[in-house]
Design a binder for these strands. Structure first.
Length: 182
DNA sequence: CTCGGGATGCGT
DNA sequence: CGCATCCCGAGG
């Protein structure tokens, strides 16, 4: 299937987030090619978005978010899970889309309903932090041409972000069984 | 250097 | 609701 190109990611973050639904995340590991369909995402809109890591400015950790679009921003959360984001918009904009749930398509054994779980199932860890998603081992492709309704909700776990916590920046495929339960 | 807390998930 | 488990970022 056709790999998404740079210009797909170099667009408005909310548009990229919604368009990522239904696409296929592919990671080629030594054990085989792991593929999951993206069914849930969240948009993080840059340094002015108090829920975004980039709101703390350009630090060693967030440097990738400030970089060019189409790269993976992977970080460790609560000392035990990794979360994966796709960097969006032009360099310096520091926006990203968090991948929150996948529907297993190929070579996936473990659970994928949640950002930490899907990284474990896809073998995504800090080695892939900053990785270019136009590479040949880790990328996103077009999905099936199915029709679906997109549900919009507040983002999960960002109550600290004042009015930004209320914004409807979480998107998922209505009725999909693999959307995370929260 | 210390220290508080986190875009989580699971068990109670 | 508690907790695992550790890196980051702020402050001294």
């Amino acid at each position: 299937m056709k790999k998404l190109n740079r210009s797909f990611y170099d667009r408005d973050t909310v548009e990229v987030a919604k368009d990522l639904l239904g696409k296929y995340l592919v990671h080629k590991t030594p054990e085989g090619e792991r593929i999951g369909k993206i069914v849930e995402v969240e948009a993080y809109l840059g340094p002015h978005d108090l829920a975004a890591h980039s709101a703390k400015g350009l630090t060693p950790r967030t440097k990738v978010m400030f970089g060019p679009p189409g790269h993976a921003y992977v970080y460790l959360i609560y000392g035990m899970y990794y979360c994966m984001n796709v960097v969006t918009e032009e360099e310096g904009h520091a926006s990203a889309v968090l991948i929150r749930a996948l529907e297993p398509i190929k070579n996936i054994q473990d659970k994928t309903s949640g950002p930490g779980l899907l990284c474990r199932a896809m073998e995504i860890d800090k080695r892939l932090h900053g990785h270019d998603l136009l590479s040949d081992e880790f990328f996103i492709t077009e999905g099936s041409k199915e029709k679906f309704t997109i549900v919009k909700k507040p983002r999960v776990g960002v109550d600290y972000a004042k009015h930004w916590a209320k914004r409807l920046l979480r998107f998922y495929i209505k009725g999909n069984a693999f959307v995370s339960k929260r």
